[in-house]
Structures are given as C-alpha cells and as structure tokens.
Simulated assay, not measured.
Amino acid sequence: MIRNFVLVLISLLSVTVTANEPLFPQKPGMVSYTYRNEFAKDFAGTLDTIVGLGITDMEFSNLFGKSASEIRTMLDQRGMKCSSFGVSYAALRNNTHEVAQNAKKLGASFVRVAWVPNRQPFTLELAEQTTREFNEIGRRLRNEFGLTFCYHNHGYEFAKHGDGTLFDVLMAQTNPQDVFIELDILWVQFPGADPVKLIQQYGPRIKLMHLKDLKKGIVGDLSGKTATENDVALGDGQIDIPGVLAAAKKAGVEHYYLEDESPSIETQIPKSIAYLKSL
C-alpha cells in the first residue's frame, strides 16, 4: 500500500517537473544582420552591446571590413563565439576555399547561404539546378573542410508543385548528409506555409533557425521581400512561436539566432529575449 502511494507520488512529481520545464532553456544567438548599421559604425562597441544582452553565440553574414582573425580575437576577448558564417552564393561557389578558411578562422562549424540570385520566380527547372549545385557545395565543404552547409529559406521556394512545394523538391533531391537547412520561420510563414508542420516534416535536416516574427495582418507572397517594419518582437506577431520552439526542440535544432530587420531593434530585441525567457 505504502509502496503504491510512493510510486504515485513520484509519478505526479515527474509530471509537475516536466510541465514546468522551460520551453526555451538556452540563450538565443544573434545574427549580425540585426545590428548591420551598428556594426558598420562601431564593431567592438556593438559586440559589447550584444554580449550585454546575455548573448554570446553569433552568426556573421558580413565581416564589415575586418579579417576573420580580427573578429575571432574580439569574440574571444568577450567570451563570445561564431557558430555560423553566412556568405553570398557567388562567393561560396566561386571562392569556396576562401569562404571555408574564413569560417574556420571565425570558429564556425556552419556555412550558410540565404539567397540564390536570379532564380525568382522559382521554377521546377531552377529548383533542380539548385539542388545539383547544393549537393556539390555541401559535399565539398564536408569532405575538404569539415564544415556543414546550410541553406536559409527565403520564401520563394514555397511555390506550389504537385502535392507540395518546390521547397519539398529541394529537400527530396539534396543529399541529407551534405545539405541542411537554416529555417527562417518568418520566410516560411510569409509565403503561406506552416513553420511547425515544416519542422515536424524535416526535423533532422534543420540544424539552425532564425527566430523572428511577422506583424499581424500581413499577407505574404512568393517574392521573398517585405518591409522591414513587418518584423516585430517575438510573441507580438502571427507566428506560433511556442509551437515552433516545441517542434524545434524535438527535432534537435542546434543553434537559434535572433534576427530582427526592423528599425526598432533597441526596443524589440530586449522584448524578444524577455519573451523567450517567459515561455
């Protein structure tokens, strides 16, 4: 009798602990693009601002006129790190060795591309061409440099195709060992897709994530473009952030970066950080 009571009590305590477990226990990282204007004016001071927010994980998509080694030194001095390095598609295809060396000097494990130029509107033919190029890039980064290639979606990939989208074509025709995704949840929501369902479908392929929210009432399209003012603080927009985080946690996403393209980052970034802590 007593033994059964103890077992029930342990079970109830376990449920309580699980229910109270934070949905987002780690600290988010930061995309340099959020502070692009600030970095261009005062690189070191901007790093101080970001680390002052409690953020130590960076994704750089620009070197802002500095060498990768210089940036690494400044990061080390502040107890920060760079886990992902974003570059243009042309740089990655034409200067793969230089990109890889810069990534390694920064300390990054991931190299990502966020836009494939001159392929909008996206078609099946362009999607299949892109998958062939992605496979080649990803294989080379992995085999020659020990780096992981990630593609950052930008909305235009969600054009309808058959029972799915051209994003599904990208996923189906790329090598799962060589090509991964940095999921930008705003650029899933904007063209009308569901970020939660997409994470559930492609979980193991999604290594990185851009956390951002889309202003309520905004109806998107396949352009991959929207006004920067449509970026709002997490929790203030139309994306199911708790649902996204729950699915991402189950999928094993490795790095989450705050990205806010708006002119209101001074107020919105602290608000987004507070929101994540509240979940």
Rank of each mutant, 00 (worst) to 15 (best):
M58F: 14
K271S: 08
A127R: 00
L183E: 06
W187M: 06
D184I: 04
Y202D: 09
S11A: 15
A233T: 02
F167C: 05
R112C: 11
N4F: 13
P121W: 05
N118Y: 15
D236S: 14
L276D: 02
Y89D: 15
F64R: 07
H152Q: 14
R205N: 12
L276G: 01
K160V: 05
G45Q: 05
I239R: 01
A227K: 10
H152R: 07
I10V: 06
E133W: 04
G220P: 00
S83M: 09
Q101T: 12
P176R: 10
I71K: 02
Y202L: 13
L13Y: 07
F39K: 03
A274V: 10
L166A: 04
D178A: 11
N4D: 07
N62K: 08
F85I: 05
T174M: 03
D184A: 11
A233M: 03
K216C: 14
T96K: 10
R139Q: 15
V6L: 13
A40M: 07
L47A: 04
L141A: 02
Y35T: 10
F149D: 00
Y257I: 08
S84H: 08
R139C: 05
F110T: 05
E136T: 14
E261H: 04
N95Y: 12
N95S: 15
E128W: 05
G162T: 03
V116Q: 01
D194P: 04
K277R: 13
A246F: 02
G237F: 00
V87L: 05
G45F: 12
K271T: 14
W115E: 07
E125V: 14
T174C: 11
Y202S: 05
V51F: 05
V51K: 05
L258N: 01
L12R: 09
D178N: 15
V6T: 06
S88R: 04
S88T: 15
L141E: 00
G252P: 02
A227L: 11
V179K: 00
D231T: 11
G243V: 01
I265Q: 01
I71H: 01
R205H: 10
I50T: 01
L170F: 11
D163T: 14
F43L: 14
Y151Q: 03
F167R: 03
F122G: 01
V87C: 12
Y256D: 12
T18S: 12
T123E: 09
F122S: 07
R132F: 07
V51T: 13
R142Q: 13
N102C: 07
K277D: 15
D76W: 06
M74Y: 06
R36M: 13
V188H: 02
I273E: 01
S264T: 10
A127N: 05
K104E: 06
Y202K: 14
A40W: 06
G217K: 06
M30S: 06
S278N: 14
G252Q: 04
N94F: 09
T96E: 11
D194Q: 08
R142A: 15
F64C: 14
G252I: 03
N4Q: 09
Q26F: 10
G146A: 12
P263M: 03
G217E: 09
V15Y: 07
G203M: 08
E254G: 01
E98M: 10
